[in-house]
Design a binder for these strands. Structure first.
Lengths: 134, 134
DNA sequence: TCGAACCCTCACACGTATGTGAGGGCCAAC
DNA sequence: GTTGGCCCTCACATACGTGTGAGGGTTCGA
């Protein structure tokens, strides 16, 4: 099985993205990535999949389910080319709704991030007064 | 059972926060809220709990587990008063780590929000050319 | 006093993302 | 040729947040 440049099997992708093999297979099962297959059945990922997986992980961590990630992944392709014909009204509504939810999430995270940071600041000042700098 | 002003039972809190009773009990089980109890065993929530529940829901929706929410909720109290003695080094490290994770989440959401919005924009332009304004 | 509408505590079930392991091929180095 | 390290599928198990319903108490108005 000759390996083309920029192609890899699941182990390498797993290391590059710090993602369990199990999860990579799961993302595939959910239709988020579609690796080619070698004649031996091994999954064959191209280089671009690395970024795609990182994107998926980030969105999952931010609370989006795979069902939604599947909807928005096509929006992320660089040469905005293929995905116009299938722009149904429902799809557009879905995207609008998801943008709103992402806005809400961002606002919530920013607000709480600030509060936690301020709290931490105060704690540190308090600490440094009690036990001056090392 | 005389109801004091600003106090409520689970049904009212559920309506005010648009949150299932089941979830409110779960948040309590996880230590996120601690309602008083009437002599009949009914949960008795004060007014401030409304905001707290909304905060919890927002953070849950943004991907934070209750275990982490429990850590950061005390940071959000208005009169920053009570919570200094228990500022252990591990706690501080945890907060730092969570601030980092929130930053990553925010960046990821902002980036993808932008991409989806741009995509949507292009789709709409495309649509309007195909079938001019209503 | 009865019924409706609350409340309580279990406890089992679901969906989602992931862990884990069994059982088994492929391939390169020894 | 065998061993070790990849890969495969399948499938059961886990944690988390929530749905749902059984079985039962409280409160209040008709």
């Amino acid at each position: 099985m000759s390996r083309e440049v920029g192609h890899m099997r699941i182990g390498e992708l797993s290391e590059l993205t710090d993602t369990p093999r199990r999860s990579l297979r799961y993302y595939e099962e959910r239709g988020l990535i579609l690796p080619a297959r070698g004649q031996n059945g091994y999954r064959d990922y191209d280089e671009a999949t690395v970024d795609r997986v990182l994107q998926i992980r980030g969105l999952l961590d931010a609370g989006l389910p795979t069902r939604i990630i599947e909807q928005i992944l096509p929006c992320l392709d660089k040469p905005r080319s293929i995905h116009f014909p299938d722009a149904t009204p429902e799809m557009i509504a879905t995207l609008r709704g998801e943008i709103d939810r992402m806005d809400r999430r961002i606002r919530c995270l920013e607000q709480n991030r600030r509060a936690v940071a301020e709290y931490l600041e105060e704690v540190l000042v308090h600490e440094s007064r009690a036990a001056p700098a090392v």
